[in-house]
Write a protein that binds this DNA or RNA. Sequence first.
DNA 1: ATCAAATGTGAATGATATTCATTTGTCAAC
DNA 2: GTTGACAAATGAATATCATTCACATTTGAT
Lengths: 215, 215
Amino acid sequence: MDRLMRTVQNVESRSDRRKRRNRQALIDAGYEVMAKKGIDAATMSEICELADVGLGTVYNYFASKDELAMYVMEQVMERLAQRIEAVTNNFTDPGQVYAFGIRNVMKAATTDQRWRWLLRRSEVIAGAMYRVMGPYAIRDIRQAVAAGRYHTEDPALAWRQATHAIVGFSLAVCDKDILPGKMDEAVVNLLGMVGVSRAEAWDLAKRPCPELPGE
Amino acid sequence: MDRLMRTVQNVESRSDRRKRRNRQALIDAGYEVMAKKGIDAATMSEICELADVGLGTVYNYFASKDELAMYVMEQVMERLAQRIEAVTNNFTDPGQVYAFGIRNVMKAATTDQRWRWLLRRSEVIAGAMYRVMGPYAIRDIRQAVAAGRYHTEDPALAWRQATHAIVGFSLAVCDKDILPGKMDEAVVNLLGMVGVSRAEAWDLAKRPCPELPGE
DNA sequence: ATCAAATGTGAATGATATTCATTTGTCAAC
DNA sequence: GTTGACAAATGAATATCATTCACATTTGAT
């Protein structure tokens, strides 16, 4: 009865709390270890050790190592999306919001040491980026289209392609196949994908870029 | 002495022939098995079995399973690139060559059952696509820029981003997250990335698409 | 025919994701 | 406060491969 009450009233029991703690601890530990050694080299042992749970426990929360990796990526994306959102909230030019967003995703991906290893599993990180940041990005594209700044029929499609292109660029920068200075042009290319003319895109990419709030 | 002669005269000895056969048999078997089960699920055992060589032999030719996978991908790309080249040779409109190329890469990636599993390792397939098809694609972009049809400062950068965007699109189609009918628009987006206006891009994407020669 | 070098071989190794039989913790009911 | 049934945690044991390596075979110059 009590349990039912809690469920109905959405009150968290002790075990619910522990479950939430464990789950989060595993994601955090996963992030820590995967960022340090890469997804493949990260062992479940080390992750469980760091999360301070038994080796078998992780499988009560995630079906596989890959699923854990996916949730790790999603958390990384969610946090970045919210930091970007905090800044673009005040923007007035609808064309600049998306442009600013992708600039910052690239900056994080190419600059932050912790991202580098995660990029090696492109399809996982691009998938997480699509799912988690998509709602923000697609909305931003849509608004810019409504304002007549962008021209694209299907913002979701453009975003899908953009996520992979962003990951590809970041990966190449990390591998030193592309100089980081190319970032502006990479942004211009991505803006071209949503129907912005080359000249306008360069204008957007060259504008000063406000700092993101700290983590 | 004889050996030296052969080397100098570029004549293949028996063992050279065997080596070439083995290497090729391993790549072919790798393609076969990886296409059937995916790169991760493909075992070296099964690949060696199919190639009819001992389990240890593969390591005389490739440093690791990942390196073998890379060569498998490169071969897939090389063959496709050459089939595309055979058709675009006769094109007169410099803007259409690259457009035709990416259309066909996407068609192969989304249609051919054998590609599907390979897409699951995006960064490997995108890397192979960049390296192997890059010389053709970058040349095509460059010529279209010279003709005033495309507008981009760095064709290599655009191609780098395009490879990942192509893989991302194809992956999403295989996962049924995007309808195959979206391909034209995906091509339009990619053309936007090389500075083609939306209207021109739609024109290019809608043109009839000659068939590729058979494999 | 003989030898040294190159190449092939697959049983053994090592690393680690995943499973599962047990133990431990939780909480509603009495 | 005790109990019992259920949920969750645990880590030793298992299973699966990639990779290695000691040895066998083939090659080709002499």
